[in-house]
Structures are given as C-alpha cells and as structure tokens.
C-alpha cells in the first residue's frame, strides 16, 4: 500500500529545459515569481501566460501534468475570484442576492487568478523538469555565498541527498513492517486518536531502531572513505553553465527589464 508512491513530480526527459543547469532554473523561477507580483496590468499577465505555455511546450511535458498542480488550490482560486469580484468597491456589474459584483472587482479577480495559477505552473515546471538530486545540487551551489553568514550549505545538501536516497528504502521497510504487524493482529485504522497513536508504537519502534542502525553504518562507511565535509571535496559530475544557460538567464533579465519599463511607462 505504501509502495506505489512517487517522490516528487520529476518527469525524466531530454528537452532544452531538462538540460538547463539547475541553478539557472532555480534562479529564473525565483525571478519569475517576483515578476508575477510586479506586473501591473492584464496585458502583462497575458504575455507571461503565453510565455509559460511556451515553456511548457519547450519542456515537452504534457499540459495536464502541469495543470494537475492547480487541483489542490482550485478551492482557493475560486474563493479568491469571488472575494475580489464582490468585495471590491466600484461600478456595479450585476447583483447576486445581497452581493454586488463590480467591474473593478472583476478586473482584480482575473488578475489574482492569473497570478496564482502562473505561480503554481512555474514552480511545477521547475520540479517537473529537474530531478530532486539536481535540485539539491543547485541549492547547494546557490547557498554557497551564504556560508560566510554561517549557512552550512554543504551539510544541508548532504542531509537532503541522504534523505532522498533513503526514502524508497524506508518506504519499503515501513510497508513490510506494517504488513507483518497487521498479520499479527495490529490495527492501525480504528479507535480514537489516542488509541491509534498507541497502535503506532509497534510500527515506529522497529523503524526507528533500523534507522539508527542504518545511520551508524552510513556514518562509518563515510568515515572509512575519509569524508570530511565539503571543503576540498571533488565531484564526479560538476555543474557547468553553457550557452543554453546564458540564453535563459538573458531572457530572464529581459523579463525583469520589461516589467520595470511597464511599471515606469504604463
């Protein structure tokens, strides 16, 4: 029952977007998110939406995969739209019971829906085209300048890598233990909350014990291979920025310039 869970949303592929350096993708996504909050008009959002559709096509990811990310927020989207529509003061469009829909509200509602959907679509696009390990690598590199402030970039990335490596292993183990305990009559799904919490103990004790054992073995194996932190460590695959990344970053900069111009001279 636990086995068929996929970690993250990564869809393997070899499109231009897949092959971009993870640093480029993370930075561009962050900039795009900020730009979304600066765009002043509907025309601007339409351009950004067209850009997002273009990127999805470039990534050769099925559109429904991207839109699936919108599902958990569907409720918020509808609520946001109706709140803006009825709560903004202005010229009356129509009345619904005691509520007054206004033209200004309709405008604001459409803007907010565009902003939220694009926010989700772009973040999904990042996780759909970048494997969790590549993301971790990218985050480690981008955090490096903050090491002077005491952010342990390498250690954070190491923990993340270990976690990603062991999720499938522990998933299988948890599944096995749950089935074994259920075969012995354990019941995880009935009774009140406290009963259920106590029924977890026969699952959690073996899982914790084996996790500590694995950590022991892992630490020893790392020590035996002379692991001493990030300083001077070499990698098999170095991240390299290429022409592709230069183009992508230039396009992102152009986007920022565009939105600044749009705000200055609307």
């Amino acid at each position: 029952m636990l086995r068929d869970i996929t970690i993250g949303q990564y869809l393997a592929g070899d499109s231009v977007l897949h092959r971009l350096d993870p640093r480029t993708k993370i930075l561009s996504t962050l900039v795009f998110m900020i730009v979304l909050f600066l765009v002043p008009s509907l025309a601007g959002y339409l351009i950004l939406a067209a850009l997002a559709v273009f990127l999805v096509m470039l990534a050769r990811v099925p559109l429904r995969m991207v839109l699936r990310g919108l599902k958990p927020l569907a409720f918020i989207l509808v609520l946001t739209f109706s709140l803006q529509l009825f709560m903004t003061r202005g010229e009356t469009l129509f009345r619904l019971g005691g509520l007054v829909a206004t033209r200004e509200g309709l405008n604001m509602g459409i803007l907010m829906v565009f902003r939220l959907s694009l926010l989700i679509v772009t973040t999904s696009l990042l996780t759909l085209t970048t494997s969790p390990i590549a993301l971790t690598d990218g985050i480690e590199h981008l955090l490096r300048p903050f090491r002077r402030l005491g952010v342990p970039a390498h250690e954070l990335a190491m923990m993340m890598t270990i976690a990603l490596r062991f999720i499938p292993t522990l998933l299988e183990e948890a599944d096995k233990i749950m089935k074994a305990q259920m075969a012995r009559g354990a019941d995880f799904h009935s009774g009140n909350l406290l009963r259920r919490a106590r029924s977890l103990v026969p699952l959690l004790v073996p899982l914790f014990v084996s996790s500590f054992r694995r950590a022991d073995e892992l630490a020893m194996a790392m020590e035996a291979r002379c692991y001493r932190g990030g300083e001077g460590r070499t990698r098999m695959k170095e991240l390299r920025m290429g022409l592709r990344d230069a183009v992508a970053l230039a396009a992102t900069s152009a986007l920022v310039l565009g939105v600044i111009c749009l705000r200055r001279w609307p």
């Binding site: 923990m159 993340m160 976690a163 490596r165 999720i167 522990l170 899982l207 996790s211 892992l218």
Partner: peptide, 10 residues
C-alpha cells in the same frame, strides 16, 4: 548528519 538525513527520510 547521517542520522538527521535518514530521520528526514523516515
């Protein structure tokens, strides 16, 4: 560090 990584997985 190793233990924290594995506990995050757990």
């Amino acid at each position: 560090l190793a233990e924290a990584g594995i506990l995050v997985a757990l």
